[in-house]
């Protein structure tokens, strides 16, 4: 999955300067926002793709080994989050090089990347479980993920802007953490019913 999304994410970052021209100041200004948009769009693909890789016979086999559905949800989320951190890191290096993005507050940025990775992993895993259990199929994915990922996108971009402008970022970080906690609780609680529908 990463071998597909990393090149496409990189190409998407490359297309923006081609579309708007090589205005270095403008690129530096919109670079962080573009980076997070790319992370959201392609990150969800990584996460949903990862969670829907498991076939029904594999799911049945794991269930009959006594694997609790909630544990399965957490495991799939962790593996997606690791993949997303790799995706964010590689595409992040490209974005910094291409848009000349300043690295301010590296620990906060790293924390933001981690929260977004976990949040997208949770959203993708939950959406994948809903899609697998529903006859509506993949048509549901953008409808479910788009509104739920907006707070993460807002939080991530505003955190960077806050670090750049020197104003408070705690409320934005808390917003992202709250989204992560809410989706995590929904995912764990719904894992059993979703496995059986």
């Amino acid at each position: 999955m990463l071998w597909i999304t990393i090149p496409f994410g990189t190409i998407a970052l490359l297309l923006v300067p081609l579309a708007i021209g090589t205005d270095a100041v403008l690129l530096r200004e919109i670079g962080p926002g573009m980076y997070w948009v790319i992370v959201m769009l392609f990150g969800v693909l990584v996460s949903v793709g990862r969670s829907s890789m498991e076939t029904l016979p594999q799911q049945d086999a794991s269930a009959l080994l006594g694997l609790d559905p909630a544990a399965g949800f957490v495991g799939r989320t962790v593996s997606s989050a690791i993949l997303l951190m790799i995706f964010e890191s590689v595409v992040g290096v490209v974005a910094v090089g291409l848009y000349d993005i300043s690295i301010i507050g590296p620990l906060w940025l790293l924390a933001t990347m981690l929260i977004v990775a976990i949040g997208l992993a949770l959203l993708g895993t939950l959406t994948g479980a809903i899609v697998n259990s529903s006859s509506a199929g993949t048509a549901l994915v953008p409808l479910l993920v788009a509104p739920l990922s907006v707070p993460l996108l807002l939080g991530a971009t505003q955190t960077y802007d806050g670090l750049l402008g020197g104003y408070g970022i705690v409320s934005w970080v808390l917003l992202m953490v709250a989204v992560v906690l809410v989706v995590a609780i929904i995912g764990v609680v719904s894992s059993r019913p979703l496995q059986e529908t």
């Binding site: 016979p57 594999q58 049945d60 794991s62 269930a63 009959l64 006594g66 609790d68 059993r192």
Partner: peptide, 21 residues
Amino acid sequence: SPDRYDVRRRIGMIGHVPGIF
């Protein structure tokens, strides 16, 4: 009932499509 989760480990199933990774 939720009790069924507790007995799953005692049930083996081999389908016509292998459930291995």
